[in-house]
Structure formats: structure tokens, C-alpha cells
């Protein structure tokens, strides 16, 4: 019986720690994402295949990319196993993938800080590590596109 309590205690500790630390890290990450997105508002990123037509004014074009791997916390993983049983919207994973993607886009923009526009942006996501029982542990997001600079 004592063994059960110890195991349960460790599990409870991990869930609580995951919840507390996970929420702090996530809110901090979201704050930094929002701040940097606000700074980058003047640089358009579009998914068009071609540039806007004025191709002769372009002085430089190059490939830029950014990636980010974000991991899930213990509490969310636990929550997921409950939701997985009953079904429904898995908000904990939604925020995970959202963070990874937005971070990747921001890193791509960082590479292109001296360019005017990023065209043909593609974003792809892949799960890179699967833990026990095939539960996804972390996701990778990659954003890439062509940065163009116009003659000023």
C-alpha cells in the first residue's frame, strides 16, 4: 500500500509541477511571440507563388527559413490522455502547435530583417519524438520562403 502512495505522490507532483511550470513558460513564450509579431508588422509575409509583378525592381532574392521544436508538459499530456478517452477538442495540443509555428515564422522573419517582403511562404509541421504509448512529445514547425528586396 505504501508503494502505491509513493507512486501516486510522484505522479501528482509531476502533474502539479507540469501545470505550474508549464503555464508560466507558455504565458512567457506567448508574451514574447506577441511582442515580436508586433515589431514585425511592417514586413509582409505572403503565400503567393510569385511576386507582385514588379520583378525588375528587385535587387536581391534568397531563401530564408526558421524552425522551432516545442515540447508538451506533463500536465497537458495527462489532460490529453483523459480527453483522448472521452473525445473532444484538445486545446493543450492546439496551443503547442500554434507556439511552434508562430516561433518558426518569427525566426524566418529574423533572417530576412533587411528584406522588404517574404513571398511563397510554406509552413510544415512534423512530430519528432513519440514517447510511450505513442503519445506525441514534441512537434517541429518549419517555415520557409523567398525574401525579396526592392530598389528604394
Amino acid at each position: 500500500m505504501a508503494e502505491f502512495y509513493i507512486k501516486f505522490g510522484i505522479f501528482l507532483f509531476l502533474v502539479v509541477m507540469g501545470y505550474v511550470a508549464g503555464s508560466i513558460i507558455e504565458s512567457r513564450h506567448y508574451r514574447s511571440i506577441r511582442e515580436r509579431e508586433a515589431e514585425n508588422l511592417d514586413q509582409p509575409i505572403v503565400t503567393f507563388l510569385k511576386n507582385t509583378g514588379e520583378s525588375d525592381g528587385i535587387t536581391s532574392s534568397r531563401l530564408v527559413m526558421g524552425n522551432s521544436v516545442v515540447s508538451i508538459d506533463y500536465f497537458k499530456k495527462f489532460l490529453f490522455s483523459l480527453i483522448n478517452f472521452f473525445g473532444g477538442r484538445v486545446t493543450s495540443y492546439e496551443s503547442l502547435v500554434d507556439r511552434a509555428r508562430r516561433e518558426a515564422v518569427l525566426r524566418m522573419q529574423e533572417q530576412a530583417y533587411s528584406d522588404d517582403i517574404i513571398v511563397n511562404v510554406r509552413i510544415e509541421t512534423s512530430s519528432i519524438s513519440k514517447g510511450r504509448r505513442n503519445v506525441v512529445g514534441s512537434v517541429e514547425a518549419l517555415a520557409y520562403g523567398t525574401a525579396l528586396r526592392y530598389k528604394t
Partner: peptide
């Protein structure tokens, strides 16, 4: 993986 967040090494 316990606390979440970005895995810089990966």
C-alpha cells in the same frame, strides 16, 4: 518534457 517549452537542443 515534464515542464514543456522549447527544446533548444533539438
Amino acid at each position: 518534457n515534464l515542464v514543456g517549452g522549447e527544446l533548444k537542443a533539438y
